[in-house]
Amino acid sequence: MRLTHPGGSTVHLAYCTNVHAAEDLAGVVGQLDRFAVPVREELGVDLLGLGLWLAEPVASALAADRGLRLGLRRELAARGLEAVTLNGFPYQAFQAPVVKHDVYYPDWTDRRRLRYTLELAAILADLLPDGAERGSISTLPLAWREPWTSDNADSARKLLSELSGGLAGYGGRIRVAFEPEPGCVVETTTQAVTALSDVDTDYLGVCLDLAHLACAWEDPAQAVARLDAAGIPIVKVQVSAALEIADPAANLDTLAEYAEPRFLHQTRSAAGAAFDDLPEALASGAPGPWRIHFHAPLHAAPLPPLTTSVPVLRQALAVLMESPACDHLEVETYTWGVLPDAARPVDDAGLARGIAAELAFARDELHALGVS
C-alpha cells in the first residue's frame, strides 16, 4: 500500500512473502493468486505492496533473463501488486521442516551471499514501479556470531565494498539494509554502528526489525538517534512483534507450545540473560520478563499471560514517522505455520485473512500518526 506522510512523501507498506514456500518462479507467481490477491481484496485496496522473498534458484534465473524479470513485473501489475522491497535474508528453503541456524548461511564472508544480493538488486531495478523513488533489500547482519574472527571481519569488509560498487551502477536507486538480530554478529544498533562504520552509506544501511529491537531491550528513540548520529540510514523497517512473558517460571507449559523445530527463537531477559533458542531458556530457570524472537501476529494478542512487544512497535513507529526516518515498511510474520494449533490458520483463506488483518493493524497505527 502507498500511504502519504504529513510532509507529503510516500510511505510504502508491504507484507513479506517469506511466509510462503517457493523455490521456483512458478511457485512465486502461484503465490500471487493464492495469497496476495486475496489479501488485497480483503483489505479493499487497489494496490498492495509485497516484500518479495525470492529463493536463490529463483533469483539466479530472473537475474539471468531480463525478459523473465519484466514478465514478473507484468504479473504483479496485472493483479494490483507491486514490489519496492525484497527480503534477501533467507537464501533458500526458508519454510523447510527445520531451518534453525541454516538461515544464516551463506553469510557475508561467502561470495555466494554477494552474488545473491546483487542478483536481487538487478531484479528489483526492473520490478520497481513507476513513481517509486528507490528500492530496498534486507539482508542478514553479517553472520551468526560464532565463529567470527578478524579474518572473517576482513572478508566481510571486502565483500561489502564490492557490494557498494555493484549497487553504484543503479545510481542510488537500490540500497541494501543489514538487519540486526539476536545471536548474530550485529545484534543491536550499537553493534550496527560499529560494524557499518566504514561502509558507503549511499548504498548500505540498516533494516530495523521491531521484534528484534524489542528482544534486545533497546529503547526505540535511543536506537534511532544512535543510527542517525552515526550517519547510518534506516533503509527499511520490519513491522513485527516478539512474544513477551512477565513470569516464565510460572508458565513453562504455555511457553513450550512455541518451542517448535523449524525456527530459532532466541530469548532475552530484561536482566541480560541470553539464550539461543526457547528450549534452552525454558531449562534455564532465568527470571523474567523475557522477550522471545517469535514473530507474533500483530493484530491478535496471544492468550494471557503471554503478551507481545506491540508497545515497542508503537513507540518505534512514532519515532520513525517523525521525519520520516524510513519510508519502506514491511510486515514480516513468517511464523504463521508454526503457531500453536489454536492460533494457526487451517487453510489458504485463513492465512490470507490473517495477513490482511496484520496489514490493516499496521495501516491503522500509521493513520494514528498522521500517515494517511
Rank of each mutant, 00 (worst) to 15 (best):
P180A: 10
V58N: 00
D200F: 04
A316C: 11
G288P: 04
V206D: 07
W148V: 11
A246P: 00
W144D: 09
A360F: 00
A61Y: 02
A22Y: 08
S323R: 15
E42Q: 12
K158V: 15
A250G: 09
A214C: 08
E146V: 15
R226T: 15
L317M: 12
D102P: 00
R268S: 07
A14P: 07
L52C: 13
P129F: 10
R157I: 06
N251T: 11
V45P: 01
E218W: 02
V39M: 10
W217Q: 13
E187V: 09
A195V: 02
P311I: 14
Y116E: 03
L163Y: 06
A143Y: 07
V371F: 08
M1R: 06
A26I: 10
A300G: 01
D341W: 04
D151M: 09
L140W: 02
S164I: 03
L124S: 07
G49N: 13
W144M: 07
P129E: 08
A356F: 06
G285M: 13
L298E: 07
A229N: 01
G354P: 01
G27R: 15
R113C: 03
S309N: 05
A14R: 14
K236M: 10
R173H: 06
S197L: 07
Q238Y: 02
L124F: 09
D253Y: 05
A362P: 04
N152G: 02
R173Q: 08
D200E: 15
D151L: 14
S164R: 12
R79K: 05
L243P: 05
P220S: 03
A223W: 03
A259V: 11
D33N: 08
R73Y: 08
P147G: 12
R79Y: 09
P279N: 10
G30Y: 01
D209C: 08
V58D: 00
V239E: 02
A270F: 05
M321C: 12
S136L: 12
D33W: 01
A229P: 01
A250M: 06
R73E: 05
P311A: 12
P220K: 00
D107I: 03
G231C: 01
P141E: 14
D102I: 00
V186T: 08
V338L: 00
H20R: 09
D347L: 05
G272W: 04
R262V: 06
T109M: 06
S138H: 14
A249K: 03
T109W: 03
Y258H: 14
L127V: 09
R34S: 09
Y15G: 10
D247L: 06
T335K: 08
A64E: 13
G285W: 15
N18S: 10
D200N: 13
A242H: 09
V45S: 00
P233C: 08
L86F: 06
A286F: 04
G131R: 07
H367M: 01
P57H: 13
P305N: 13
G67A: 15
A362C: 09
L320G: 10
L47I: 06
W108I: 11
T139M: 07
H20P: 00
V206K: 04
T194Q: 14
A64P: 00
G49A: 13
R157Q: 13
D219H: 02
L298I: 14
T10E: 15
V206F: 07
L86M: 08
P182Q: 13
I292C: 11
L3T: 09
V99Q: 08
R111N: 02
A125P: 01
R40C: 04
V28P: 02
R363Y: 03
G285R: 09
E162T: 14
C215S: 01
C326V: 15
P57K: 12
L243Q: 06
G166L: 07
